[in-house]
Write a protein that binds this DNA or RNA. Structure first.
Lengths: 219, 219
DNA sequence: GTCTATACGATGATAGAC
DNA sequence: GTCTATCATCGTATAGAC
């Protein structure tokens, strides 16, 4: 793909830029980040960034791409497995939890990428297309998993698109909720105990919602 | 509270500004919005805005405040009712769905307000405090509802804070998901049919997750 | 209450030396 | 590849006329 001389090297400027930009974009959004700030934190002059990326949009796109690719890597096992859908579902949610918990900026960046559509000009679309493709890929695989589970009779007959949306929201939001989330929790979000508890709770929550027969007290 | 001469009048400049700003903040985030853009869309000069609001942060805070107050109004009945917790839960989720579906910018603005913490200076905190207070109030009431349901034996013994987080994510995210969500749905988010289906699906999802006895296939 | 004019810093991006 | 200018533009905010 890109300039990749030797598959690995001591963290190139390129990767340092991506790391710094990722943290900043997650915290402040696309419009809220200045390239001067990025450059300063990397230890470069502002102009040096343009040697690595043609512009701000391109940098943002590559940051997003990298985040989603990391998540997909984590989900691959769940999608490729062939056991019961219930087990694959649990693995999918756990994989997503792990990916988001391991890399704090990921969740915010992910949700932000949904919101910041209107910020880009039409001519930026080619630059952002790969990101959209990756998102479409992973949501498609999740939908497939749910459809399969329903077909096998393992899940209730829910609206698959709505269930996908619910799962995304239930899992991703938590790791993006920041101070509000920590106020609700009464403690940190990314501590080891909190991450473990969250993984268990949200997996059981979704599992129960999909597997159980139509709720007793409900028409 | 503010300048409220007569409780009602033909839409004052003030309210028009709030409406326009709300749409823009939801679409482009705090940093992505220029006051010039707001002024232009209202039909005012840029400087005229400062006659109604002392600054950008203040405008943003009031927009957010208004959105959350609208939501709380919708949730009031659910919180004040005294029937079974299962019924109050359903009413709460439906109320939240209605509030978010009725006012398209609300969900994005709400989630954005969680993300944009780091954008503000310490001296802006007093301005933003009322918003935080309202969020804390509504999440507190939701937690109370869940605790009561567990105490009555109507709900599973879940972690209440995690369940609150899950509910927020499951419900709010959907209405903020924009193009990605519409791609998953294969249709619009805010159409009447879509809104009705969503309300039913997500209410049943959460209701089932909380009410059902621990999932069969699960340890 | 709204306008014009303006101050003044920060922004993304470019050019060219080293 | 990194740097030092430099550019044109746009940002919030202020002052003062109408």
């Amino acid at each position: 793909m890109h300039t990749d001389p030797g598959t690995s090297s001591s963290p190139s400027s390129r990767e340092k830029i991506l790391d710094v930009a990722e943290a900043l974009f997650a915290a402040q959004g696309f419009a809220g980040v200045s390239l001067a700030d990025v450059a300063a934190r990397v230890g470069l002059g502002k102009s040096s960034l343009f040697h690595h990326f043609p512009g701000k949009v391109s940098l943002y796109a590559e940051v997003s791409e990298r985040v989603i690719e990391r998540i997909i890597q984590r989900l691959q096992p769940a999608f490729e497995a062939s056991g019961p859908a219930t087990e694959r579902l649990d693995r999918m949610i756990e994989g997503l939890c792990d990916a988001l918990a391991e890399h704090a900026p990921a969740a915010r960046l992910l949700l932000r990428s949904l919101f910041e559509d209107h910020l880009f000009a039409p001519e930026d679309e080619p630059t952002l297309a790969p990101v959209e493709a990756l998102v479409a890929k992973v949501t498609g695989l999740a939908a497939e998993l749910l459809r399969d589970g329903i077909a096998r009779g393992e899940f209730r007959e829910v609206s698959v698109p709505d269930a996908v949306q619910t799962v995304i929201g239930a899992v991703v939001y938590h790791y993006a909720s920041g101070e509000v989330g920590e106020k609700i929790l009464g403690g940190p979000i990314f501590s080891a105990e909190s991450v473990a508890r969250r993984r268990r709770e949200v997996t059981t929550f979704i599992h129960t919602a999909l597997v159980a027969s139509p709720a007793p007290g409900k028409a």
